[in-house]
Design a protein around this nucleic acid. Structure first.
Length: 444
DNA sequence: GATGGCCTAATTAGGACTTCCGGTGT
DNA sequence: CACACCGGAAGTCCTAATTAGGCCAT
């Protein structure tokens, strides 16, 4: 169970000696995995340091004495929230961060990172790139050769980190916040707010998923891309381009069903184990339009905060909590049973936050939870870690304001809410980070 | 004045879609 | 008839790499 003081995040950076992290196997489960978002990839830096803090507070937010140490720590602060909000379609992007709190964020992202997954079992692994396993033997289409021009040869721009393509570690080091569609879909599939409501696995073993509510998914995608006119037709075109690139396959004979050719090893699988009824395009077919409205009303899109809010205030018609988060029923190579870990990123605080009211969606409850360690963060000396210090101050202020606002509204503080959230998370989510084994039967 | 280093803005190339379209199948 | 699906073509947006030009110190 997560305790306030136990908050940890994933930490990863090239300068992390992962062997030093092996002893933290008892840390609570904050599974940070397959962070497709470039920022998130870049930001993987906070958590292990906070994990270190569990044993040695004095090392909290230790900043490596490298050239960009300050900025790196800055990144980690943002990463904390980002990583914990990656299940929220509305917070998949860090645009908010870069545009509001961290206008210069893009300028300071310059650190190659290594991804580390932390679970109840400790550091699962440190990888220099997402660990994908191919779901079948089909190789992606050859990358298009860039046309040679008279100009001096130059480095090619990094392409989408497709599952079978090596991710260049510093490809997003200039602040890009691109979240590719396939990444977005994977995020949705790991988000209990939308999975299985709008999108669900039909065969997680083979990476097959279905767009239960294609229009809703398309609108979420459009919202993310700031394309209010996005529809399934358009999104589908983008999906079809993925056929050529070997990222997706179409499942023959099944509508709205696609297949990832590769999946990250640490994919979180949310399945609809007890027959929870999906929307099946209710909003469109029935005209009910409950899930995602046609008028692009964001309030109806199941952003995590709002969705949980709804659930807490008045039970939703389709209760998400009835679905479980689990690994696919596949044979595991791991001999010892994994302890049940929580994906604490799924649940959301219950009440509308002050920050939300102020249209500052950048500070999630999880980040606020992070800031429960704020005294430690604030212990940083401004001189040494100016950007971190300022960020901590800012976020701390927001945290206090939010807590105060919630207390004033319903006498329920943020921390209490967050604690409840942890409890809820333990009850509601049963998560394992599946270590998918390569499919012996790769032929579909 | 010449040279070199640094910085910055502009330019360019290319990836990832997005939009539109005509068509087929269910 | 509606919808899913397909793929070509052209366009947009964004980002990274490159280039050019200005400034300054030597």
């Amino acid at each position: 169970m997560l305790q306030q003081s136990e908050l940890i995040f994933d930490f990863a950076s090239d300068h992390v000696n992962t062997s030093q992290l092996g002893g933290y196997s008892d840390y609570p489960a904050v599974i940070v995995e397959q962070v497709p978002h470039p920022h998130l990839l870049s930001y993987a830096g906070l958590t292990c340091e906070q994990a270190n803090a569990e044993e040695d507070h004095q090392q909290l937010l230790k900043v490596e004495p490298c050239e960009s140490g300050e900025e790196e720590t800055m990144e980690t602060l943002v990463a904390a929230d980002s990583l914990l909000n990656m299940d929220c379609p509305d917070t998949l992007s860090l645009e908010h961060y870069s545009q509001t709190f961290l206008p210069s964020l893009g300028d300071v992202i310059n650190t190659p990172v290594t991804q580390v997954t932390v679970s109840a079992e400790g550091i699962v692994g440190a990888v220099d790139q997402p660990q994908w396993h191919s779901l079948h033997t089909k190789k992606p289409a050859a990358q298009l050769q860039s046309k040679k021009r008279g100009r001096k040869p130059r480095h090619r721009r990094a392409e989408s980190p497709t599952p079978n393509i090596t991710v260049k570690k510093d490809k997003y080091n200039k602040g890009g916040n691109t979240l590719y569609l396939w990444q977005f879909l994977m995020e949705l599939l790991q988000d209990r707010q939308v999975c299985p409501r709008y999108i669900k696995w039909t065969n997680p073993n083979e990476g097959i998923f279905k767009l239960v509510n294609s229009k809703a998914v398309a609108r979420l995608w459009g919202k993310h891309k700031n394309k209010p006119d996005m529809n399934y037709e358009t999104m589908g075109r983008a999906l079809r381009y993925y056929y050529q690139r070997g990222i997706l396959n179409k499942v023959e004979g099944q509508r709205l069903v696609y297949q990832f050719t590769s999946l990250p090893k640490d994919m979180i699988y949310i399945t609809d184990c007890d027959g929870t009824k999906e929307e099946e395009d209710y909003d469109d077919n029935s005209g009910n339009d409950e899930g995602v409205s046609d008028d692009s009303d964001d309030s109806t899109i199941p952003s995590s905060d709002q969705s949980v809010d709804e659930e807490d205030s008045h039970p939703p018609q389709k209760k998400m909590s009835s679905s479980s988060v689990r690994a696919p029923a596949i044979q595991r190579t791991r001999p010892a049973p994994r302890p049940t870990v929580q994906r604490d990123t799924v649940l959301r605080p219950t009440s509308t936050s002050l920050i939300q009211e102020q249209h500052l969606p950048i500070v999630s409850a999880e980040m606020l939870r992070t800031l429960q360690n704020l005294p430690k963060v604030q212990s940083l000396q401004p001189a040494g870690h100016a950007s971190v210090f300022k960020t901590a101050q800012l976020l701390g202020s927001l945290c206090e304001r939010q807590a105060a606002a919630e207390v004033s509204v319903d006498g329920k503080g943020v921390r209490e809410t967050l604690n409840e959230k942890s409890h809820h998370g333990q009850k509601a989510s049963h998560v394992e980070a599946p270590q998918l084994v390569p499919l012996t039967n790769s032929d579909h």
